[in-house]
């Protein structure tokens, strides 16, 4: 299988990672597009002994962070006011399943460094080691960010009236 075919196979995961990381489906696909373009340009730097997905995630993360830095924004997030007053204030989930928009919105309220770790571990099931490589921090930092992200996310979702995450089995 050539590199482009392998890349094509990773597109669904790249889209999911980007969406969860960025919180906006359209912008996420733009970032994915940039990511694949860069991956093609830099394909000679890819070490086939390493998992392709982790390599691509690292590129995607860099594309996203550069875009934030360049546009001078700390994150593509709505302000808390917007969340409380406007379209952000969704009614509590009627069913157990939270919508992607609801979760994305909750994730968007986490600091970027916490959000990327919980998305990589909780959604993409990346190992701590891969997450450390993707985000360029030691494994210990990954673990402490993950722990803080999990409790913050639980607080946010509970505060919003979602019962799913604290329901006792």
């Amino acid at each position: 299988m050539d590199f482009k075919q392998q890349l094509a196979g990773e597109l669904p995961h790249l889209r999911r990672f980007a969406w969860a990381l960025i919180g906006d489906a359209a912008l996420a696909d733009d970032v994915v597009q940039d990511c694949i373009e860069r991956a093609l340009v830099k394909s000679h730097l890819y070490d086939p002994d390493r998992p392709l997905r982790a390599w691509l995630f690292a590129i995607l993360r860099n594309v996203f962070i550069s875009s934030l830095r360049r546009s001078g924004r700390s994150a593509v997030v709505k302000t808390v006011d917007e969340l409380v007053g406007g379209e952000g204030s969704v009614a509590p989930a009627q069913e157990d399943r939270l919508s992607a928009a609801q979760v994305a919105e909750a994730l968007n309220r986490l600091p970027h460094q916490h959000r990327e770790v919980i998305v990589l571990v909780g959604i993409e099931e990346m190992s701590y080691r891969d997450v450390a490589e993707i985000t360029g921090v030691p494994i210990g930092t990954v673990m402490s960010r993950l722990s803080r992200a999990r409790s913050a996310l639980r607080d946010i979702l509970e505060e919003r009236g979602h019962t799913v995450l604290r329901r006792v089995k």
Binding site: R16, Q33, L98, I118, K169
Partner: peptide, 30 residues
Amino acid sequence: DAYKRQNDALKQAFTDVLSEPVPASLVAVL
């Protein structure tokens, strides 16, 4: 249990994007 439930909720929320067709614009790049 709480960590597991949270992982499940996160995954479920974003599960559809894995099965939906990739937009043509992305495939075109390749």
